[in-house]
Simulated scan of single mutants.
Amino acid sequence: MMEADVITDWEDAWANGPHIPGGAEYPARWAQAAADFRSTAIMRDGIFWPEGTPKGLAVVIHGGWWVRFSPDDWSHLAAGALARGWAVLIPRYTLAPGARIAQIGQQVAGAIAAAAAQIAGPVVLTGHSAGGHLTARMVSAQTPLPPEVLTRVARTVPVSGLFDLRPLMRLAVNAQLQIDPAEAMAESPPLLGPASLAPMIVWVGAAERTPFLWQSRAMAATWALLGAPTRLVEERGRHHFDIVEGLTDPTSQMTEALVGGL
């Protein structure tokens, strides 16, 4: 984590890999862990199914700045909730610049609605980085979720999310994202406020880069001030790449936060 209060190099401030030991090795590790998980899991219609009747639907939305990765790189993040008896969906969406962020949100909402039509019970949502944004977006005002699905959302756990899109307009990645001021205002959960009073636990690694900490702190504080049941967890010793490992473990604090008590 950077300690400076004033950021002078914005590209470096948002860069995770160069500041994480072995950062370049993580994508290959994720892909291998995901492939190993799929080799033993039961999957139908893009959903991982537990033994017996699911307790509900858990949704894990992958990250990658909306421009990288696919569910095939993140299948292993279904392991924790699956072992707790939940069906798990990792939605597939078109990467930018093939789709704008608003369109990606619509795709994710459609995938959640289709899965929820097959699975009874509560729906819980989590996602990492860009997936953290999409998690919060699903329960924000002007949500793309159908009302009958929104009412079933029992809890959300956005992880290391990019919630306020306005700062991203100044980054090189915006050549692909094409965020403009209107889209930033229309797709930023802190600016929209909540559409649901389902509890939200905003999760971030305490060792993350300063902008990611700022994003999560601002997200949690803003919605709490608006009356939503929101709290912040800054997990000690975790950075942007290893923070999601909690979702692979059915006994972790993160998995408990997502599905515990439901």
Rank of each mutant, 00 (worst) to 15 (best):
H128G: 03
G161T: 09
G46E: 05
H19S: 08
M1S: 13
S160E: 12
T156L: 01
A102S: 14
D5A: 14
G46C: 07
W10Q: 09
D5S: 09
E235A: 13
A130E: 00
Y93E: 03
A141F: 08
T40V: 15
A195L: 10
F69R: 03
V139N: 04
G80H: 01
A117T: 10
T143S: 14
S129R: 03
S39D: 09
P146H: 11
I119M: 00
R137H: 02
E11Q: 15
G85T: 06
V139Y: 00
R238M: 11
T222M: 14
R170P: 07
Q103W: 03
A81Y: 08
D12G: 04
V259H: 01
Q32T: 08
G98L: 05
A154L: 11
I243C: 06
T8K: 04
T94H: 06
I90R: 00
Q106K: 08
R68M: 11
L95N: 09
G17V: 08
D12Y: 02
S129E: 01
P50T: 09
K55F: 08
D249T: 09
P167K: 10
A41R: 05
H240I: 06
H76E: 10
M254F: 08
I61D: 07
T255Y: 01
R137F: 05
P54E: 08
A78C: 07
T222E: 15
R238F: 11
S196C: 14
A172S: 14
I104Y: 04
P250I: 05
L197F: 15
A195R: 11
V60F: 13
A141Y: 04
A257S: 14
A31G: 03
W10C: 00
M2N: 09
G110Y: 01
A33P: 01
L213P: 11
G161Y: 13
L165W: 13
A120V: 02
F69N: 11
R68Q: 06
R166D: 09
W10T: 06
Q142W: 06
V124C: 01
Q176R: 14
R38E: 05
M138V: 04
G131P: 02
